[in-house]
């Protein structure tokens, strides 16, 4: 199973009420890749990532993590995954240090390992000074960082990060990019979703463009973008640019 892809999605479907959020997504994420998932708002990125990490049951389809069926053996497969979901809360009445410890213990790590890794992670993410503060008092960016620490603490083989850079300041974002880069170089696999094309183009080696619940393009960055920039290619694929001429009345300051 060593050469199986880190993540393989086969024919994933998910409906919410009458709305089809994800309609038949197939995707192969090679082991050791830094994979970007891009798409407009409401494209189904979060839904896809939730189904890939065991947080949301697909209506149809299979999720294979390193060749193992996630939804058939959730307990075994979840130990291989590190997850950072978007738009959910944390157990924010714990301190930052307690929260990372909690995540580590839930993964079955022993006390010494958790303690050592929590200290390392807090230092790497510049949270040491706030380690004893309750997470509820953290800013949005600090919350993102402590959630990332929770995803990393058990050294998973596959990291799935939904919007990891949202609200994070530029210095911390650069630190996180370094951490993720060296993690990929050491053999791990990272999937990130983002709106920021520029970031994905610089950071990732693979990318998939998702819109309206379908994969529009997938492959290495160079394959997908061709001659232009990723952003131009994305706009080509997704469409929907409107000119700003329509809102002439918005220029209140001109008169």
């Amino acid at each position: 199973m060593s050469n199986a892809p880190a993540l393989e999605l086969r024919g994933l479907w998910r409906k919410f009420g009458d709305k089809i959020a994800v309609s038949g997504i197939d995707l192969v994420v090679p082991a050791g890749s830094f994979y970007g998932l891009v798409g407009p708002n409401g494209a189904g990125k979060t839904t896809t990532l939730s189904m890939s990490t065991g947080l949301l049951q697909p209506d149809f389809g299979t999720v294979l993590v390193h060749g193992h069926d996630l939804w058939a053996n959730p307990i075994e497969v979840k130990a291989m995954l590190g997850v950072l979901p978007d738009g959910v809360r944390l157990f924010d009445r714990l301190t930052g240090e307690q929260l990372i410890t909690y995540a580590g213990l839930l993964q079955g790590l022993d006390r010494e390992t958790v303690a050592a890794r929590a200290t390392d992670l807090l230092a790497a993410l510049d949270l040491t000074a706030d380690a004893t503060k309750l997470v509820v008092e953290y800013s949005a960016g600090m919350t993102k960082k402590v959630a990332l620490a929770c995803a990393l603490v058990h050294a998973p083989r596959l990291l799935v990060l939904d919007e990891p850079f949202e609200a994070v300041d530029p210095v911390s974002a650069a630190n996180i990019r370094d951490i993720l880069g060296s993690y990929v170089r050491s053999g791990g696999t990272v999937i990130v979703s983002s709106h920021v094309m520029d970031l994905v183009q610089r950071m990732c080696d693979h990318v998939a463009v998702i819109a309206a619940g379908h994969v529009l393009a997938a492959g290495t960055i160079d394959e997908v973008r061709g001659d232009g920039s990723l952003e131009d290619r994305f706009v080509d694929l997704v469409g929907g640019r409107v000119s700003g001429e329509g809102l002439a009345w918005l220029r209140t300051s001109s008169d």
């Binding site: 959910v88 809360r89 157990f91 839930l106 993964q107």
Partner: peptide, 15 residues
């Protein structure tokens, strides 16, 4: 009461 923070339990290999 856990609210959406319950994802921590769902994502972990917790019985």
């Amino acid at each position: 009461y856990d609210g959406t923070a319950f994802w921590t339990h769902v994502a972990a290999p917790l019985r």
